[in-house]
Nucleic acid binder design. Structure first.
Lengths: 171, 171
DNA sequence: GTTCGATAGTAGGATACCCAACTAAATTGG
DNA sequence: CCAATTTAGTTGGGTATCCTACTATCGAAC
């Protein structure tokens, strides 16, 4: 039995510990620990990022949509294009745009040339918010300040290999 | 299976591309790209792991609960202990145990010494399933076969630094 | 030009997660 | 010994994501 401590923070690395136990039962735990660690880091980082965005009424998912629209040279983007770029399900985009529209940060504009399509366009309020939100995220260094710059780059490259293997992009 | 919408593989790295565009607007994008990449890797890996577990009627979250119970030397664990170890919200554990119980993989057992507490215990069916499920996950190398063993270890250590910075554990 | 398959977006249902608030039970302190 | 606090677990509300299925529209083949 492990002692009952007043822990929010554990006095050991739980994933490390899980890995040890896992090995006793099932064999080498390297892959399992990495997978678990990815899940955990994402959970922590998302909580941190969402926390920083909360004052703006945004989640990281919706922030990403705003950023994408900010980049767009041609201005408004069809919803399908947004989903494709952010690699999320079309229904998730519909939901995100619903909320952003209700917040007055984006606008739906029907495509006159293809009446199936709908563009999403940033409002001036949306432009204002995305700038402030970006500043807030930069302040907390996107929650990756646990790593030095070059380690951030290393981590990015390693994760990139994982994405590629999972079929994220070609070439 | 990454299924949902990735029918479309992009001919470039969308995060790399987003980073470039982001830099033009907001400055150095290293941190932002790493954060985005973590989100994306988690999304892909989780889809892959969930896909492998689907035949067993499990999600990765519920698989983790079963594994934890398998490790436990003392057998049954109180729900609070499970949540603490897996670092998820108590309500998520309640939900997970509800489902696992409905599937006949775990059992709720009231603690006679502390009537607030409830233990979760693996059933024999649960033991059988966790072994098969683990085999299935090992088959796909926990979706991290995009990296060689030593790179997996490097990635794990880098992610560990991120977790520590986010306050995941002490020391 | 009419039919048929593909595409864009949405609606409804499911899962999973978190938070806030609640019930019940144990523990602590005066 | 009883009131106040703490702890364990659950319920209800909100968000995000995915899936299946549907409507509307476009485009192409016959």
């Amino acid at each position: 039995m492990v002692s009952s401590m007043p822990e929010k923070q554990l006095p050991f690395d739980p994933i490390e510990r899980a890995g040890e136990l896992w090995e006793e039962h099932f064999g080498d735990a390297t892959a399992m620990r990495l997978a678990t660690s990815v899940m955990r880091v994402q959970q922590l980082m998302l909580a941190s990022l969402d926390g920083a965005l909360k004052p703006f009424g945004l989640t990281f998912a919706r922030y990403e949509v705003l950023v994408l629209l900010t980049f767009s040279r041609s201005g408004p983007l069809p919803l399908s294009k947004i989903g494709e770029r952010l690699m999320v399900h079309p229904t998730s985009i519909t939901n995100a745009i619903d909320r952003l529209e209700a917040q007055g940060l984006v606008e739906r504009i029907p495509d006159p040339n293809d009446r199936r399509r709908t563009f999403a366009a940033l409002t001036s309020e949306g432009k204002r918010i995305v700038t402030s939100a970006t500043h807030a995220l930069t302040e907390i260094d996107f929650s990756v300040d646990g790593l030095a710059m070059d380690d951030q780059e290393s981590a990015y490259q390693l994760l990139r290999s994982l994405r590629r293997a999972a079929g994220d992009f070609t070439d």
